[in-house]
Computed example of a mutant assay.
Amino acid sequence: MNKLFLIIICLFLISKASNAQQSLPVLYGDRMQELMDKIRPKEEAPKAKAKPESLSTSLLKYAKTLVGVPYKYASNNPKIGFDCSGFVNYVFKKIGVNVPRSSAAFKYAGTPTKLSKVKAGDLLLFTGSNANNRQIGHVGIVYKVTNKGIKFIHASSTRSKGVVISDLDAHYKKRFMQGVSILE
């Protein structure tokens, strides 16, 4: 009889245990879901894709990193310095755009643009340091156009002797020859 009693008790306990397992999700379903929500990582809203940077923005960002490189006649090597056209040539090549190597040749590159229509990334062509000689001898890249004026980045052989950002002041306006749009 002891054996029979033990078997009945075991069957009873097994039955209770299986009923308990079956009823757990029903009894604790809401609570279980609540706990799962707390530990499960929340789905993030899809992020908006960043707009690709424009060529002119890339050009100007890179050009700005070269501010302070010294002036070196006939060079387009940042390790030793730049002349004006070497600087422009080097920066444009870095963004995958081929442009001339001499400042005079820029007159025939891209689209001629009036000074009142230039935008960031366009080129400004100037006479050389002698404003009376009306031949192109200097080139720079328009850095910023605001209602206060135009700033451009270039390798200057005078003043600070190197890559600088300058205002298009009276000195440069007197020497201005034409604007050129390369990146349209």
Rank of each mutant, 00 (worst) to 15 (best):
A120S: 13
G149W: 07
V145R: 05
L60K: 05
K148M: 03
G140N: 03
G140E: 07
Y28K: 14
A105N: 08
Q33W: 00
R175F: 03
F92A: 14
H171T: 06
V67P: 03
C84F: 05
A131R: 12
V163C: 05
K174C: 01
Q33N: 08
R40M: 13
S15G: 15
N19I: 12
D37S: 14
G128I: 07
M36K: 12
P52E: 15
K173V: 00
P46A: 15
K49F: 10
F92P: 00
V97K: 10
Y108Q: 12
R175E: 01
P112F: 01
S15P: 08
K148S: 08
I150N: 02
D37A: 13
S54T: 15
S56A: 15
P78S: 07
K94F: 01
T113N: 03
Y143R: 01
T146S: 15
N132S: 15
K79W: 04
P41D: 08
K16N: 08
K114P: 02
P52K: 15
E44G: 09
A131N: 07
N2S: 08
I182C: 00
K161T: 03
G128W: 08
R175L: 03
N147P: 01
M36S: 12
K107N: 13
G128C: 09
A63D: 12
P100D: 10
G162R: 04
K119W: 02
K42N: 09
V118Y: 00
L60R: 09
P25L: 08
A17P: 04
T57I: 13
K114Y: 06
G121T: 09
K94V: 00
T111F: 06
P25H: 07
N132K: 15
K174F: 01
R159Y: 11
A105V: 05
K94W: 02
R40P: 06
S181Y: 05
L60C: 04
G86P: 02
I39D: 06
S157L: 06
R31S: 10
G137P: 05
V142K: 06
A50Q: 15
S157N: 04
K94I: 07
I7W: 13
K173N: 01
L115Y: 01
T158R: 07
H154Y: 07
S103Q: 02
N77G: 04
Q21P: 00
G81I: 02
A63I: 10
S18A: 08
L11P: 01
E53V: 15
K61N: 14
A105K: 01
G81D: 06
M177C: 02
E184N: 15
P46L: 14
N132G: 11
V145K: 14
C84S: 01
S116L: 09
G137V: 03
S160F: 10
S129T: 15
S157C: 04
Y90I: 03
Q135I: 10
A74C: 04
D169E: 05
K144P: 02
K119A: 13
Q33S: 11
A20S: 13
R31D: 09
H154A: 00
P78E: 08
S103P: 03
S103M: 09
A74W: 00
